[in-house]
Design a protein around this nucleic acid. Sequence first.
DNA 1: TTGCTAAACGGAAAGCAATTCCGTATACTA
DNA 2: TAGTATACGGAATTGCTTTCCGTTTAGCAA
Lengths: 213, 213
Amino acid sequence: MAGNTASTGVDSAGSATSGGPVGAPRRLRSDAQRNIDSLLEAAKAAFGTSGVDAPAKEIADLAGVGVGTLYRHFPQRSDLVVAVIQRDIDACADAASTLSAANEPGVALAKWLFRYTEFLATKRGLAAALHSGDPAFDALPGYFFERLGPVLGSLLEAAIASGEIRAGISPKDLLYAVANLSLPVADEGVAYSQRMVALLIDGLRYGAELQRS
Amino acid sequence: MAGNTASTGVDSAGSATSGGPVGAPRRLRSDAQRNIDSLLEAAKAAFGTSGVDAPAKEIADLAGVGVGTLYRHFPQRSDLVVAVIQRDIDACADAASTLSAANEPGVALAKWLFRYTEFLATKRGLAAALHSGDPAFDALPGYFFERLGPVLGSLLEAAIASGEIRAGISPKDLLYAVANLSLPVADEGVAYSQRMVALLIDGLRYGAELQRS
DNA sequence: TTGCTAAACGGAAAGCAATTCCGTATACTA
DNA sequence: TAGTATACGGAATTGCTTTCCGTTTAGCAA
């Protein structure tokens, strides 16, 4: 779970001067670890209540720590946002593998995409941050793909092999396309997103039979 | 062109001589109008250079006015953003009618969608604002649709009539779907957006022949 | 257990950008 | 040409992020 280390650094390089095994950055003190967890919990709650722009103070209070502590672990407000999102990405990836094991290839693909859609729908404001242009979020899309890409990749591969879906679409493209389609627009809700995703899936089915056999 | 009046009010009504009836807003003073124009120009430039988060001061300086003046015409920073976007929406709508007059229905539809895609691509940060959840932008999607909906509606209608596209998709859905797909993701450029839009169009073609005749 | 020290804490203060206020300047009208 | 509503500029206010630093504490060794 990447989120836990925050971006305080804990840079992988241990610069081995002490002769010990490289990359042993010294373990986090227990209270620090506890506070990081509290902060992530609090942040998730605050983002849900007050949106991504919830003041740092509000989050710190909710977590029962001072703002100084918040900034010790998450040097920039955006680092907290990133950590929270990464946590949820991990959860989604895990759910995917379970789902793929219990369904037919084509069904598994569609089901997972809809599940993914719902997952994104709960993000709302968080997803917006992704597109804010703030360099602080530059790493997120990468993490997104790194984590979910392989999962969707297998689903896709299986569905193509069974002839239900045409080849030629990359996991990355599909991942991002659905993410974008799931952004909240106007007064429409999740229903809109799902309609659009369904349309995209039809696009994938278009011409699939030509490749069969 | 809605942008010019800013949100200071100045509702469309004009006329009304001296002892006029209720709601004669009184025309804008010439220097005020000039400053509003300068501000819109400056804002567009600043957004391009420093992103949507360009400081108000920067924009005011660029326009050669004080921040007080900026806030007089655009009470909230977001009002400026809205005005700039509306301007560009209008331009896109106009281009659409021209295009639709010079092409076959199906071609016109596809061409316009790609043109629309490119238009959105230049917005980048601005588009992100749309999804920020800030209530200040609530009116934008409405304007977006009000202006572009009818245009895309005609294109769509014609393409459906010619049997190239299946019925059942609303202009609104398509408009928003493409807008979302055009959001910048990761390191991909416009090419990505266009690939996805093409996929969506294929989705529309899927099953079209079944409805023919 | 006790003592020591690096690590972590909390919250006051500093830094910044958005927004408001208000005295001054100016475009219109009579 | 004078009078007045409008508009102007920029200093002051406000609210939030981020930094700083004296105080507290977990983890370790004697």
